[in-house]
């Protein structure tokens, strides 16, 4: 038991060291880091302007108004920001497999998927993360802050990040079955991101089912927004179950795919 705990501690220490190393990359290029992060914050803020104008004209969409859009953009931005700033390598699985670049991770004594995911960072995603956190905070304040709502917001922020990462890994792993499918993987990711940024309350029936259980577009924005507005145990269970399902599915699909991977002849170091 003690040995197991030591192993877990070692693993977390290794992940923390990787993250520290990646953050040093950010601070090395300070000007580019600040410029890209601020640029991304302004970029995302444009969405809010669009929705402000939209709700000014139409009032509401199935009970949703501008304040719900604050929460929606907050969760999607935060989830994307965490997943892409810390584990950007996951978005390159398809490219790595195509060019035989996964070899260098296979020989290392750590989980391959974790290694691959932590192998790269995206500077601009820090902007998504920062604005996302601010918007989640603004949403909780506007709907009325309480211990339950704050706790749920923190919990969901983490879950949304896991779903974004899980979905990314699944669509990137398509390459193990369909060669040279990088663009297809990117397109499928867009397939989820696009509707996730729309007022989800307009999606009902079959479309709502698809965007919740097949493409998790509503899970990364609309669902947490609704649960925080009207907290419920059922909502918490659904959100937790879907998040865990995506984490396990990602690991399973990647491992199954990796068995089909054929080594490349490129020489690289890590």
């Amino acid at each position: 038991m003690e040995g197991k705990l030591r192993n877990i501690n070692k693993k977390w220490a290794w992940i923390a060291e990787n993250l520290r190393f990646n953050f040093r990359v950010f601070t090395e290029y300070k000007a580019a880091f600040v410029l890209q992060s601020v640029g991304m914050i302004l970029n995302n803020a444009a969405f809010l302007v669009v929705w402000y104008i939209f709700f000014h004209i139409f009032g509401s969409v199935n009970g949703w108004g501008f304040k719900e859009m604050l929460g929606l953009d907050g969760f999607v931005g935060f989830g994307y920001g965490v997943a892409f700033s810390l584990t950007y390598g996951a978005t390159k699985i398809s490219k790595m497999a195509t060019f035989g670049l996964l070899d260098r991770f296979l020989t290392l004594p750590q989980n391959t998927l974790t290694m691959v995911s932590l192998s790269d960072v995206q500077m601009s995603a820090i902007g998504d993360l920062v604005l996302g956190a601010l918007l989640i905070g603004a949403y909780v304040v506007t709907v009325g802050p309480s211990f339950t709502r704050i706790a749920l917001a923190l919990l969901f922020a983490g879950m949304v990040s896991l779903v974004v990462l899980g979905f990314t890994i699944v669509v990137q792993s398509i390459v193990f079955w369909i060669p040279n499918s990088q663009e297809l993987s990117d397109a499928l990711f867009e397939f989820m991101l696009g509707p996730s940024l729309m007022p989800n309350s307009a999606f009902t029936g079959a479309m709502r089912f698809i965007f919740t259980f097949i493409i998790p577009a509503i899970v990364i924005g609309g669902l947490p927004v609704n649960i925080i507005l009207s907290p419920s145990i059922k909502g918490l269970i659904v959100m937790t179950a879907i998040s865990l399902a995506w984490v396990y599915l990602a690991q399973w699909v990647f491992n199954r795919g990796l068995r089909r991977y054929e080594s490349g002849n490129l020489v690289g170091t890590r």
């Binding site: 580019a32 410029l35 640029g39 444009a46 601009s124």
Partner: peptide
């Protein structure tokens, strides 16, 4: 150095 942030902002405006 990198005009990408400028492109993001302008295209979103």
């Amino acid at each position: 150095e990198d005009p990408t942030p400028a492109w993001w902002v302008l295209s979103k405006i």
